[in-house]
Design a protein around this nucleic acid. Structure first.
Lengths: 162, 162
DNA sequence: AGGAGAATGTTCGTCGTCGAACAGTTCTTC
DNA sequence: GAAGAACTGTTCGACGACGAACATTCTCCT
């Protein structure tokens, strides 16, 4: 990073690529990177995908319902790290869009079983493919072993904080 | 997940620990984990720290200003992954709290140089210590090599998406 | 010079998320 | 069995972040 004493030959009419700012004292902080990586990753995915309404933002939720049909709203909320109350609005919209359905569950008249519709499953599948593309860009340059370590480490963090 | 044919010996009056739900098709997805880990990590930190007003939420920003005093709002916003317009409100409050200051920069009357006050530096230092505690909990069980790989991988992801 | 274009910080309307409350239902415990 | 606690989904008010505008200032070109 230190500019060598030997002046560069080419005229630097091109400004240096604006060395990324580094937070003092958080040089090794994981939380800081976690937040930044998440914001950028999310944005890059949403910018790339259009025409699916609110679904892309909630792909994680949709995949969760897909893999665990009939689950209650409470458990879904906890699994995706959202508040029960927040989930209500989200499910309202996705239900209005014909992507999922809330059905009565026999044996407990309080809770509702959340399920994907056929259309919901199709939309989820398409979004999954787009997410995979987006993720490939994000993970470019990381070999398989590093990716595996990354996934395992994140899982451990999630488990520690749950 | 399939229940073995051999019935468990102990009476399971204790319900199974509610096996965490897994999103179908995203079993290896990094974006999903990134978001979840970030939400939980953030929440755990904010729950643990009280009495600092709005500062904890913006520790990353404060550390950034601490390490790069005099930087413009635009560059700060980009570095921390926020919108320029969002940063205005945040800086307004932190400035009102006496944590930072916006000074005129000579040579460009558009931009303003953001700096920490003495009090701001002290608050940042205290929050940094608290963040380190919180992070220790999150990273429990990960050895030094794994942590280093994690940090490097996140840095790479951030660089790829920037 | 001088005018088009870009960059800076800012305001404003919109929307998503939270947290505290609530009514209805189920569980627990005496 | 009946009352109290615990859980379900829900509503409502408060607040944060966004995106599109804007006025001001700077830069670049010819």
């Amino acid at each position: 990073m230190t500019r060598s004493a030997a002046a560069p030959v080419l005229p630097d009419d091109v400004p240096p690529p604006a060395a990324p700012l580094v937070p003092a004292g958080l040089e090794q902080d994981v939380g800081y990177r976690l937040r930044l990586a998440q914001i950028l990753s999310y944005r890059s995915f949403e910018d790339r995908v259009t025409g699916y309404g609110a679904a892309p933002r909630y792909l994680g939720l949709l995949a969760l319902i897909d893999g665990n049909p009939g689950e209650s709203q409470s458990r879904l909320a906890e699994a995706v790290g959202l508040q029960r109350s927040s989930l209500v609005t989200i499910l309202d919209r996705l239900e209005a869009d014909g992507i999922l359905a809330r059905e009565a569950v026999e044996g407990d008249r309080r809770s509702k079983a959340v399920t994907l519709t056929d259309r919901g499953r199709q939309v989820t599948a398409e979004l999954r493919a787009l997410a995979a593309e987006s993720e490939a860009r994000a993970l470019d340059g990381l070999d398989a072993a590093t990716r595996a370590t990354l996934v395992a480490a994140l899982d451990r963090i999630i488990a520690n904080l749950r």
